[in-house]
Every structure is written in C-alpha cells, then in structure tokens.
Design a protein around this nucleic acid. Structure first.
Lengths: 180, 180
DNA sequence: TGCATGTAGTTCGAAATCGAACGATATTGT
DNA sequence: ACAATATCGTTCGATTTCGAACTACATGCA
C-alpha cells in the first residue's frame, strides 16, 4: 500500500493559467485510524527500501525475514508453517526458499513423518548470513533512534499488536459465503 | 517487508524423530525498534490485502492512493510530484496513471508551462470512485475500532510521523559518494 | 477397507514494482 | 548565445507477489 502524503495546511492548486477545466482544491482530513494506517504504509515502504539497501548483494527483505524467523523460532519447520507465520502465500515461500537454498543458506529435506512435507534447516552459512543481516539492519536503523524515545516505542507497541491481531482475526472471518 | 512472527515463550522444535542434523532451538528477542518495524510490516501487509478485497473490481491499493491524494491535496499536479508524495518511483506512477486513465477516472493533459510535463485531473467518475473507495475502506476498518482506543491512536501518531520523517531524511542523505 | 475431503508443495499466468537508460525539454553558468 | 546539467515522462528487463489449478499424500468417516 504505497502511501499518501500528509495534508499541509494550504495546498497549492497551480495558480495562473487555466488548464482544461481547471484544478480542483483540496478536501478535508482523514479519520485517525486511516491516518495511522497511512503512516504505517509509508514507514513500511521506506524501511524496506532502506533495509534492502544494506543487505548483502541480492538478498531481499523477504529472504531476510525467513532467515530471521528460522533463527529466532527454531528451524526444522515446514515451508507452509513458515509461510503462515510470516504472512506470505505458498508460492512466494517456494520461490524464497529456492533462492535461499541456491545460495546455500538453508537446506530442504523431506519430512520423515509426512510424505508431502518438507523441512527447512539453516546451514552454517545461513546463520552467518542472518547475523550479518541483523548487524547491517541494526546499523541502518541506528540513526533513527533519535527520532523516537524508548518510552514511546514501548507505548506504541501494544496497541499495534492488538491492531495486528484484529486484522488477522478479521481476515480469518472472511471465507464463508452462506447462501439465502 | 513481509513480517516475522512474534516470539512465543517456548518455541517448539519438532520433537521426536531426528531429521538430518536435527532442528536447532530458538534464540533471543528483538530490540524494540526492530520489533516495531516488524509489527508495522505485518500490519501494512494485512491492511493492504484487506483494502484490496473491498475495493471496486480491479482497483489496487496504489490506484486508490493516487485518487485519494488528488482528491485531498488538489488535482492539476504533475505525475512526478504525485510520485514523490506517495513514495513510488516514476515508472510505477506512469503505469498507475495509465490504468486510471483507461478507466476514465482521471485525465492527463500536457502542462502548458512545461513542455516535458503533464498535469493530472480527476474526472467526475474519478471523484465518485474515490468516494466509493473511502466508504469501502472505512467500512473495512470499522471492525478494528474495538482493538485500539482513540487515545492510543493519537498517542501513537506523532512518534510514527517522526519515525517517517527520520526515514525520509536518512534516505535523502544517501546519494553522495565523495571520493578520497 | 474404501472413498471423500483436506493439506503440502509446486507450476503457471497475470500484475505491480523497481533500477537503468533514453529522448525531449528546462534551466543554469559562462 | 551556447554548452553542461537537471528534470519529465516513458520504455525495457528483471524480480517479486499473488490467485488458481494441479499432483501427491494424509486423514476422517462410512
């Protein structure tokens, strides 16, 4: 969701000249939840760009997320489970895992308990790459520390977690289409 | 930036059996700013999916953002200016505007004051579509109102705006590579 | 047991986004 | 006036993402 701008007090419809039918003036502001999601969309976009700039060559944010997930939550998990956890669809996870395996950062083995399934394991190179990514990311967001206080972070996190949970719940409650 | 999961207290490395080399256990938690950006990434992802589900057929979040921007900030702006405001690259904006023009939601005319430029104007259908989108989006996020209080929203917004500004500034300060 | 249904991972096609590069026009400096 | 430089919108190629559909295997129920 590429983001919108914030509303400067007096927007400037191009003055002078008259383009076909003329420019129309601005309108009112957004409701607070709208504004919040807007800001979140912008931040996500900027943060992802910044992250991918400092990541090792060719590593994408989605790759880092998988490495980080496996490192933090433990590996030996199935692709489907990882996909659900990091909120991407299965084909995207297939693609991501193939790229990471081609780089030697993880290994896929068949699940001995489920003939359909696979299990994902980090290699040593994978753990090292994850550590390098974390270091790079940490350095990249260090300059932002001055913009927000620790207290604000701790205050903002719980509501955002609730918002996330509500969005998650709202999504799950969308499948049935009972007739009549 | 597809998101990571939150760390449940005792992660469960698949017990029983021994897959090739065995599953490795989880690690420690993330620093708060990390966690915040993580949460933001998840929320953005879920919110965008939810938004696109309720938008009129074929309309994407990026399209809505442009319609909303023009309606709120005033139209008669150049594509490049819109692109900067909503944080997408120029080719993406070209694509978005072409799609919207094909739908008759806006009109592109040459800039009388700049032979290179164009100016973007909303059509009546465009304003109507924007209103419909806003209504749909408002209805879509209504169920989330219970998850976060108005006070929390107002408390969370200023730090996020500062974070956004810091990210924006950090991005601009990345171009020069002065030698020696 | 046998069949229906569900899930795992993959393939396929469509769409969006980005970076790089290009022609056209503006602007700036000398 | 004229060259150097910057900006505008676009095209191109590569990459990612998604939804739908497919095969293979699991699980539940008669």
């Amino acid at each position: 969701m590429p983001p919108d701008d914030h509303p400067p007090r007096g927007a400037n419809p191009p003055r002078g000249a008259n383009p076909p039918r003329g420019a129309n003036p601005p309108r009112e502001a957004d409701p607070p939840l709208f504004a919040l999601l807007n800001e979140i969309a912008i931040i996500e976009h900027l943060a992802r760009n910044r992250l991918e700039r400092v990541l090792p060559e060719g590593l994408r944010a989605s790759h880092f997320v998988v490495l980080n997930h496996l490192s933090r939550m433990g590996d030996g998990r199935s692709p489907a489970r990882i996909a659900r956890a990091v909120q991407v669809e299965k084909p995207a996870m297939t693609n991501t895992l193939q790229k990471l395996e081609a780089r030697g950062l993880l290994r896929l083995s068949p699940d001995p308990r489920d003939g359909r399934g696979k299990l994902v394991f980090l290699t040593e190179a994978g753990r090292a790459a994850r550590a390098a990514c974390v270091a790079a990311a940490t350095a990249a967001i260090a300059p932002l520390a001055g913009a927000v206080t620790e207290a604000e972070l701790h205050a903002a996190l719980p509501p955002l977690r609730r918002l996330r949970a509500a969005l998650d719940a709202a999504r799950d409650a969308e499948e049935p289409t009972p007739e009549t």
